[in-house]
């Protein structure tokens, strides 16, 4: 389909002889917030790394904006990477640079903007995520929630068409987590950017997700695909039901 920005076909990941998942097939549509969910150890982060080309698939193919990122090299790879942004679980900001300098790194690498322009764009990106007054602070001097916001600002520096977020809510208090969910939905609505979010935080999934897939460790693959709220209400697969109706699991435990 023309408005699919990610197409994944029969993807498999293996570490040695251990299969993490296989036969994973889905597509992500332009402008939606797409959630990859599942329990711990089901391969969510591995799938993210496969999508952005950090590790090669054992089988199948993942095309991001038409490109199999793991097979691109040199300039085509650079150009393809400039069209996506990634926010890592812990922010992955460079510790020796302040927030403004961190956000300016991709601008320095991929554009010919002069230094003052890079700084202005970086400040604007920080302002967009509510960190306008923290531009000169070092990553070690800010909280976990601010680190994630700064990570989003850096990931958005080049106006990417797709933003990948790895566990944006992990380790955050409920209020900060809800604030981050608001930020994601606002950015998705206002900028039209496609978001691919890896998370197992149920509240976040229901708050931000337009569509989702669910991976399962035992099934070694996808066990559900669809709108998260519909899956919560209508899923028939016992594990999907258990995941979305957390209270049932707790009662059984």
């Amino acid at each position: 389909m023309a408005d699919n920005v990610i197409e994944v076909e029969k993807l498999a990941a293996r570490f040695g002889s251990r299969t993490v998942f296989q036969d994973v097939t889905f597509e992500v549509r332009r402008g939606e917030v797409f959630v990859i969910l599942g329990g711990s150890g089901c391969g969510k982060s591995t799938l993210l790394k496969l999508l952005i080309g950090l590790i090669p698939p054992a089988e199948g193919e993942a095309r991001v904006l038409g490109n199999p990122l793991n097979r691109l090299h040199g300039r085509p790879r650079q150009q393809a990477l400039a069209r996506i942004g990634v926010m890592w679980q812990q922010g992955a900001l460079l510790g020796s640079l302040n927030l403004m300098q961190n956000v300016a790194v991709p601008l320095e690498q991929h554009t010919k903007l002069p230094r003052e322009a890079r700084e202005a764009v970086a400040r604007a990106r920080l302002g967009l995520v509510g960190l306008g007054d923290a531009a000169t602070r070092l990553p070690a001097e800010i909280s976990g929630g601010m680190l994630k916001r700064a990570g989003i600002a850096r990931a958005m520096a080049l106006d990417p068409e797709i933003l990948f977020l790895d566990e944006p809510s992990a380790g955050l208090d409920p209020i900060t987590s809800a604030g981050l969910d608001d930020l994601i939905t606002t950015l998705a609505r206002e900028t039209g950017t496609t978001f691919v979010v890896v998370t197992h935080e149920l509240q976040s999934i229901l708050a931000i997700g337009d569509r989702c897939i669910m991976l399962d460790k035992d099934a070694k693959g996808m066990i559900a695909e669809g709108n998260p709220r519909e899956l919560r209400d209508n899923a028939t697969h016992p594990k999907v039901r258990a995941f979305f109706r957390r209270e049932v699991l707790e009662q059984k435990a």
Binding site: M100, E119, A120, R123, A124, R125, L126, G127, L128, G130, L131, G132, D133, A135, T136
Partner: peptide
């Protein structure tokens, strides 16, 4: 608006 919220340090 974002730039106004992030004045030059």
């Amino acid at each position: 608006d974002a730039l106004a919220a992030a004045p030059a340090p």
